[in-house]
Simulated scan of single mutants.
Amino acid sequence: MKLLVLGGTEFVGRAVVEEALAMGCEVTTFNRGRHAPLPGVTALKGDRTAPGGLAELERGEWDIVVDTWSWAPSAVRDSAALLADRAGHYVYVSSRSVHPLVPFGADESAPVVDASADDGDGDYARNKMGSELGAVAAFGERALLARAGLILGPHENIGRLPWWLSRIARGGPVVAPEPADLGLQYVDARDLAVWCLEAAWNGVGGAFNVVSPAGFTTMAELLETCVRVTGSDAELRWTSADRLLTEGVRPWIDLPVWLVGDEHGFLHGGDVSRAVAAGLRFRPVAETVADTWAWLQSVGGSAPQRPDRPQLGLDPKVEARLLGHE
Rank of each mutant, 00 (worst) to 15 (best):
S116D: 00
S116C: 02
D118L: 13
D119R: 15
D119I: 14
G120K: 02
G120T: 04
D123S: 09
Y124E: 02
Y124S: 02
R126P: 02
N127P: 05
K128I: 00
M129N: 02
S131I: 01
E132P: 01
A135P: 03
A135V: 02
V136Y: 03
V136S: 04
A137E: 10
A137K: 03
F139A: 04
G140Q: 08
E141Y: 05
L144C: 01
L144V: 00
L145Y: 01
R147E: 02
R147S: 06
G149D: 05
I151T: 10
I151H: 13
L152G: 10
G153M: 08
G153F: 05
P154R: 14
P154G: 15
P154E: 15
H155E: 13
E156Y: 05
E156V: 05
N157H: 12
I158P: 04
I158S: 14
G159C: 07
R160I: 01
R160L: 05
W163R: 07
W163K: 06
W164C: 06
L165Q: 06
S166D: 15
R167T: 12
I168E: 06
A169K: 03
A169Q: 03
A169E: 11
G171T: 10
V174A: 09
V174F: 09
V174K: 05
V175F: 12
V175K: 10
V175Q: 14
V175D: 14
P179M: 04
A180Y: 03
D181E: 15
L182T: 14
L182K: 13
Q185R: 06
Y186P: 01
V187R: 11
D188Y: 10
D191F: 11
D191A: 10
L192W: 06
L192G: 02
A193V: 00
V194T: 15
W195Q: 11
W195H: 13
L197E: 03
N202F: 09
N202M: 15
N202E: 15
V204R: 08
G206E: 05
G206W: 02
F208A: 07
F208T: 07
V210P: 01
V211H: 11
S212H: 10
S212K: 12
S212D: 12
A214L: 07
